[in-house]
Write a protein that binds this DNA or RNA. Structure first.
Lengths: 226, 226
DNA sequence: ACACAACTTCAAATATTCTTCAGAAAAGCC
DNA sequence: GGCTTTTCTGAAGAATATTTGAAGTTGTGT
């Protein structure tokens, strides 16, 4: 999934980024209030990890900005202050969850996944679409009762498809969701083609039907109806 | 849909154009105030993307000109960040939405689509005309309950017809809407004939009636009444 | 440093759509 | 009816988009 890490402590930020990236997420970072605002008004994220104490502004204002645009984004508040006030005001302003420093990265990761699941899959731990079954916790995908091994990108792609099922999604939006900022630097979509091919092949090999339709000149659509 | 990009930064303009064109839109560009005025008084667009800071005039005056001709065109204001005044005056003068630089192209695209949908289809995601049903998200067209596969041009043509239903539209306006500036370089309307033919054939093949009437010497009309 | 897997790039093959052209059909006009 | 103009149609060619396999690169763990 696509994350924004708002954290002024660069070491911690780097740690979080590397851990969360290894878990298969696309991460972007903002180190202060202004960067954070720039990002959240211009890009879309699945979850924003928001430190409330920023050098040039109040993290809560980022949260307020997110509320205004009534977006789908989830927010996990991070704060060193163990003050109950912060926690309450954060949750009052629409944050999804709260974690206090210091924390284990695995704990952070678990909470992010929980937020995402709650928002996108009504807190289900298992998603089922036709013959496809996904265990979000175990990161395991079954097609017609048999497990298929997906790489991180393939898994992310599948999740993205499923959370936009029966809608056309463009190659651009796929690139943005799976590669974040970096998507701009590529000048072809060869890599998207490649991952689509591999995902299709693996689903097919396991006996699954034809889920991913190509909409020539537009993009792709993941069919779960017919 | 047909867009006009008013932006003096040529690199940004080019980026926007290429992205939006790839999304299936017809794009034209204006690099300064005078070009913009020339364009908006001579042609019609679905949405104008308007940078307020232009070298030879005020972007707001373009907006005012658009208001005067009481046209159907939507306006998305683009401006450097933090100029709250710009934002307010833009929205006061009838702009539909506002986006601050820097922004992500997908965000721009999403807002443009939202403006268009709001204006033309009262924000509906599904349009229905007699036996034709269009799912704008899925990019799917049903005729008498069966899906028909349309190419990008055919789809655009259908949308253009439907948003001008029961009105005569000239080949010129079709060419302008689907090909923008490039329309001038063609010396016949053979390509328009061709796409109309294909669209008719596909609707008919799916059991739909006769929607597109030829008005000899004038153009075409898309009938949704009788 | 090595092996391995995943990711990306490249180039060729394939598929689809768009445009052009030429001739046929239809409509308007005398 | 003849004549001109406009529209329609099918087929071929050009252009564009997608798919694919293979090679190259990166990154991870041992």
């Amino acid at each position: 999934m696509k994350l924004l890490i708002v954290e002024d402590n660069s070491e911690l930020s780097k740690n979080m980024e590397s851990y969360l990236a290894k878990e298969g997420n696309t991460c972007e970072t903002a180190f202060n209030y202004h960067q954070a605002i720039d990002k959240v008004v211009s890009f879309t994220y699945d979850v924003v990890i928001l430190d409330l104490t920023l050098p040039d502004g109040d993290g809560l204002d980022v949260l307020k900005a997110l509320n205004k645009q009534s977006s789908e984004v989830g927010v996990l508040i991070v704060s060193a202050r163990n003050s109950l006030d912060d926690k309450l005001s954060g949750l009052n302003f629409g944050a999804d969850d709260y974690i206090t420093k210091p924390f284990h990265l695995s704990e952070l990761n678990a909470r992010i996944k929980a937020i995402y699941r709650r928002r996108n899959f009504s807190n289900k731990k298992v998603i089922e679409c036709r013959e496809i079954l996904i265990d979000l916790d175990a990161h395991e995908v079954f097609v017609a009762q048999t497990v298929i091994e997906l790489t991180k990108k393939e898994y992310e792609l599948l999740i993205f498809f499923i959370s936009n099922q029966n809608r056309v999604i463009t190659k651009q939006s796929i690139a943005e969701h799976l590669w974040g900022d970096q998507a701009d630097y590529y000048d072809s979509f060869d890599f998207v083609y490649q991952h689509i091919k591999n995902l299709r092949k693996k689903i097919l090999a396991a006996g699954g039907g034809d889920y991913i339709t190509t909409i020539y000149g537009m993009g792709y659509k993941f069919n779960t109806l017919s």
